[in-house]
Simulated scan of single mutants.
Amino acid sequence: MKSEALPVDLYETHRAGLLAYARRLSGDGVLAEDIVHDAWLLFSRQPAGSVVSPVSYLRTIIRNLLLGRLRRAGIERISTADFDMAVSTIVDNTVSPEDTVATREIVVRIMEAIDAMPDRQARAIRMYHFEGMKLREVAAALGISIPLVHGLIAEGMAVCNRIRREGQ
């Protein structure tokens, strides 16, 4: 008999504090009442003396029940949302046909600019940017120094970047 009376005394003693805790977490007094009641029902199923810190355990149950309800509410909001409303909030990341054409024109102009560069500079840019060669590999292939390769590529890319900026 004594083991049954203890949990009820525990509930009556700590009910106000548990309600305040649940209210603080949920922001809703009615929901807090429901959660504390549900937490108590779950707690009362535990064997007597199996919980070392009953108030902390009750707080954990309350927090977990609130999280579960919030998740369920979020899922229900998503599942009952109006399709047109949900679709209207999706950002359209597709590129317009006009942007595609403009980009292609810029690429053509850049390729023409590379073709118009001195042979060594054009080859250095192609090897480095299109073929993925390292600076030292480009330098070895062209028979020039690494700093010279770097300078050729930097000058050529400055021209390409100017064309790209003009096209925007």
Rank of each mutant, 00 (worst) to 15 (best):
R72T: 10
P54T: 04
M111I: 12
L58D: 02
A141Y: 07
H37R: 14
S79L: 14
V108N: 11
E131W: 01
L18C: 10
R59L: 03
T60K: 11
D28C: 08
M117Q: 02
E137A: 12
D34C: 04
R23I: 03
L25R: 10
A16Q: 13
A154R: 12
V108H: 13
R63F: 11
V55E: 12
S145Y: 01
T100N: 06
K134C: 03
Y21C: 02
A73V: 06
P54G: 00
R126G: 01
R71K: 11
E76C: 09
D9T: 14
R109P: 03
L148G: 05
K2L: 12
S3N: 14
E155Q: 06
I163Y: 00
V159S: 04
I61G: 00
L65P: 07
Q121I: 02
P147L: 02
P147C: 06
T60F: 12
E98S: 12
N64E: 10
T103V: 11
L10G: 00
I61M: 01
I78K: 09
G74E: 13
A158I: 06
V159E: 08
L65E: 03
H37Q: 15
P118T: 06
Y128Q: 02
I78Y: 14
S50Y: 07
I62E: 07
R162H: 07
T13V: 08
R162A: 04
E4K: 01
G151N: 07
A113E: 02
I78W: 11
R136V: 15
P54K: 07
Q121H: 02
M157W: 05
V138T: 04
A140W: 08
V30F: 00
T60N: 13
R126P: 03
G143T: 05
L58R: 03
N93H: 14
D92R: 07
A124Y: 00
D82L: 09
S53R: 15
V138Y: 03
E131A: 00
G156E: 02
I163E: 01
A113M: 06
